[in-house]
Amino acid sequence: MIDALVYDGAGVESYDDLGAARAAAGTTWVHVGEATSGEIDAVADTFDLHPLAIDDVRNNVRAKAEEFSAYTFALVKTARLTRGETTFEEEIDDEPVGVFVGEDWLVTVATGSAESIARVQEAVRRGDERLLERGPDFTAYRVLDVIVDDYFEVLDRLERQIEAIEDEVVDSPDADLLGEINSVRRELLSFRKVVWPVREALAVLSRGDLKHVREGTEKYYRDVYDHLVQLVDLLETYRDLVVGTRDIYLNALSQSTNEVMKVLTVVATIFIPLTFVVGVYGMNFADSAYNMPELTWEFGYPAVLLGMAGVAVVMVFYFRRQSYI
């Protein structure tokens, strides 16, 4: 779907014809959402976009920023978490967005829906004065800004997942929790692969030596760059939290195993002397001068049982005093 807008301080007009929109006075913004190959080729022909830049958008390569003679090209990526928010099985879904900033025109090409760009288009249609009067480089900044703002929403959802996992580690560390921890860790790594190159691209746009980014607009690009620096720092912090949570889980699991082994060891230790007594009195040889006299004693059996019970009680008391149980 191709959406062409031409605007200046006087107002906004929509165009169906790309050539007419390109030739109209004012700032021309052409956005191609969920772009087909034919639509991308039509826009590329109208604005003379370099084939390599178009291929970068089609092939979803690493985010980047480059300067051409007639325009500045930036490839960034939208990001969102797919699947339900209540599951830990979510994945980072990224889609490329090509931003071409010319002298008096702007072209944005998205292979997906890029819903965030629609919010900027709506602001233009409503007559946002800052967008209507400041040219294509400022509109490009707003597009990049809303894309980066969406990154924070993704990060907030990841933070909620980490908090839920931390609560589970403390309350009920079960066998499935390790899979949840590893899933969130993979999401953080995937998100970092999206954010880090976009930060590098914004660094190029904000450095102050690009012909199509005016001096007054550079500070806005630097603001977006600062947001990305903050995002990268938060990602590193959250990744450390996940690693720490995994260590806590493994320690808790090890501690639980140690507690079970300690109980089993205490039980086995209590039964060792009892088993020895039973084994000794099980050797009931008959017709010998060396037979145990207790075998013919009337109270031998209850006496042995009482002795064994006494040994068990003494050992339990000792283990409790030593805090083994």
Rank of each mutant, 00 (worst) to 15 (best):
V316E: 05
G135Y: 04
V184I: 07
E166C: 02
A35W: 05
P173Q: 09
D167F: 01
V12Y: 06
D55I: 07
M315A: 03
E67G: 04
S206Y: 01
V76H: 07
I162L: 01
R222I: 00
R186Q: 08
V277L: 15
L188S: 00
V43A: 03
R125G: 12
R119G: 13
W29V: 00
V313M: 13
T87K: 14
A20R: 12
T82G: 13
S113F: 08
P273E: 11
Y7F: 15
L306C: 11
L234M: 13
D56E: 08
S323H: 13
G279S: 05
L158G: 04
A4E: 03
A309I: 04
D287P: 06
I325T: 06
A114Q: 04
K262S: 11
V242G: 01
R130C: 12
T86N: 15
R239Y: 12
V57W: 01
R130H: 13
G26E: 07
V316C: 05
G33S: 15
V280W: 09
Q322R: 12
L228H: 02
R321L: 11
D56C: 00
R186A: 11
R222K: 03
L158R: 04
R83S: 12
I270A: 02
K64N: 09
S172I: 13
L235G: 00
D56Q: 07
I181K: 04
V232F: 07
R160G: 14
E91L: 11
V232G: 04
E153L: 15
A289Y: 08
V243M: 07
T86D: 15
E200W: 01
A309N: 03
G127V: 09
L305A: 09
F319S: 03
D287G: 10
L234F: 08
D174Y: 07
A140H: 00
D174M: 00
K64G: 06
Y225G: 00
E166Q: 06
V107L: 07
L295Y: 10
F191A: 01
D223M: 00
T111S: 09
F317A: 14
S190D: 14
N251F: 09
T108K: 00
D45V: 10
N284F: 04
L231A: 14
V61R: 12
Y249T: 02
G279M: 04
D16T: 09
D156M: 13
S172Y: 14
L155W: 03
L155M: 15
E180M: 13
V232L: 09
V184E: 05
V170P: 05
D149R: 04
I92P: 06
R207W: 02
S172W: 15
R83N: 14
D223Q: 02
V316A: 06
A42F: 07
T36S: 12
G9Q: 09
D94P: 03
G282P: 00
E39D: 05
F47P: 01
Q322L: 09
E89F: 07
F73S: 00
E129A: 15
Y225H: 03
M292A: 08
K64H: 09
A4R: 01
W196R: 07
K77L: 14
E90K: 15
V170T: 14
I272D: 00
E180Q: 12
D171M: 09
F152I: 03
V232T: 10
L274P: 01
M315E: 06
D156N: 14
P197V: 01
A25T: 04
E129T: 13
L131E: 02
P273H: 06
D48V: 09
K262Q: 12
S254D: 03
V124D: 07
K219P: 02
V263W: 05
G11P: 06
T82I: 11
